[in-house]
């Protein structure tokens, strides 16, 4: 299957999955993006995107065990599928080749 073209927020979510590994579920994904990009998200925006990614076959989910800190509610864990990893790599490569040699100028920008 060819790599999928990713939207900007989809990329952020996939990066977060990559970083978090087995720890990735709604709250941690949101926190990861919020702290790194300093933008605030709604939890349902995260799930909307994950829903779409799952439907495209880029990620898959599994239901975890209930925990007390969540008031006995279960977690929904997400993990990157090979197609998702490949799509993210394609996106990253496009990004880095476009920024190659202009990193300093980009950083100097206000």
């Amino acid at each position: 299957m060819p790599a999928a073209v990713l939207g900007e927020f989809e990329q952020l979510v996939l990066f977060a999955l990559l970083r978090l590994g087995p720890d990735a579920y709604g709250a941690t994904i949101r926190r990861e993006i919020e702290t790194r990009t300093t933008r605030s998200l709604s939890i349902s925006a995260v799930y909307t995107t994950l829903e779409r990614l799952e439907q495209k076959g880029l990620v898959r989910s599994r239901i975890g065990e209930p925990s007390a800190e969540r008031g006995g509610r279960r977690r929904k864990h997400f993990e990157l599928l090979p197609l998702g990893a490949r799509s993210l790599k394609v996106a990253y490569e496009a990004f880095s080749s476009m920024t190659e040699g202009i990193e300093q100028r980009l950083k100097a920008m206000r």
Binding site: G26, A27, R30, I43, R70, R73, R74, R75
Partner: peptide, 8 residues
């Protein structure tokens, strides 16, 4: 899960 995430 959404409620769980919010509570957490």
């Amino acid at each position: 899960w959404v409620l769980g995430d919010v509570v957490e």
